[in-house]
């Protein structure tokens, strides 16, 4: 049986200059099953962001392929990739996650709105998620009225609101103090368990890494370890 997410022979390099090339990823192979809670770790510059971007269809590898739930992402048009991201993947970035003119609730409902989900259903879902994450009191606030930790929690809520199959979080805790960092990861784990969504996040914080159930380690663009914890 094929895995939920298959990463095959992915390579990616960046051309900094005419003759300076950085190999960000070299021949990465990875299988992830539905419902896993995976951390990608490794030192800064090891290729975590690049790998997550490629898995999420935000970046295109030089070679190799990404297959998400039977759908081959590599080679899709920008428009189709937009649709795949909208319908199947949730994203949490390191910072600047939220659309600043929309309230927390509107941010959470944004992807559902894009999908054309009716306002009433959006309301019910955003209420359900924020209840789960304990952010009901934040719903009517604008992003600039929220602390960094609160913003990230809203971002996590948004990433799962439209019930994606996969949530990708690139160093979601990097800008948070360790207490909020742990709380945020606990939240993601809760969603992973209760909603059954597959989560892949990256981090180089050992405390955070310890929360995952599988650890994938990158070093200089190569996959050096892939163990269940």
């Amino acid at each position: 049986m094929t895995a939920f997410l298959t990463v095959r022979h992915i390579a990616k390099s960046f051309h900094l200059d005419k003759d300076v090339t950085v190999s960000a990823l070299r021949d990465i192979n990875l299988d992830i099953d539905r419902g896993e809670f995976v951390v990608i770790s490794g030192p800064s510059g090891s290729g975590k962001t690049t790998l997550l971007n490629i898995i999420g269809g935000l970046d295109v590898p030089d070679s190799g392929e990404v297959i998400l739930d039977g759908l081959k992402l590599t080679g899709l048009s920008e428009r189709s990739l937009s649709r795949v991201r909208r319908d199947h993947i949730g994203f949490v970035f390191q910072a600047y996650n939220l659309l600043p003119v929309l309230t927390a609730r509107e941010n959470i409902e944004y992807v559902m709105r894009l999908q054309g989900v009716k306002g009433e259903r959006c309301r019910i879902r955003s209420a359900e998620i924020s209840e789960k994450l304990g952010i009901v009191s934040l719903l009517d606030k604008l992003p600039n009225q929220l602390s960094g930790g609160q913003q990230q929690r809203v971002a996590v809520a948004r990433s799962v609101a439209a019930t994606p199959r996969l949530v990708l979080a690139d160093e979601p805790t990097a800008n948070l103090d360790s207490k909020s960092a742990i709380a945020l990861i606990d939240m993601m784990e809760k969603l992973n368990q209760e909603e059954g969504v597959t989560v892949i996040f990256s981090s180089h914080d050992p405390m955070v890494i310890g929360k995952a159930r599988r650890s994938v380690v990158l070093k200089d663009g190569k996959l050096v370890a892939n163990n269940a914890i």
Binding site: R79, R85, R86, I89, Y96, L99, L114
Partner: peptide, 16 residues
């Protein structure tokens, strides 16, 4: 532009 990047990343198409 950052905002627009986020919008695009989470699934807004260029046309939208």
């Amino acid at each position: 532009v950052k905002e627009i990047g986020i919008m695009r990343a989470i699934g807004t198409t260029p046309r939208e």
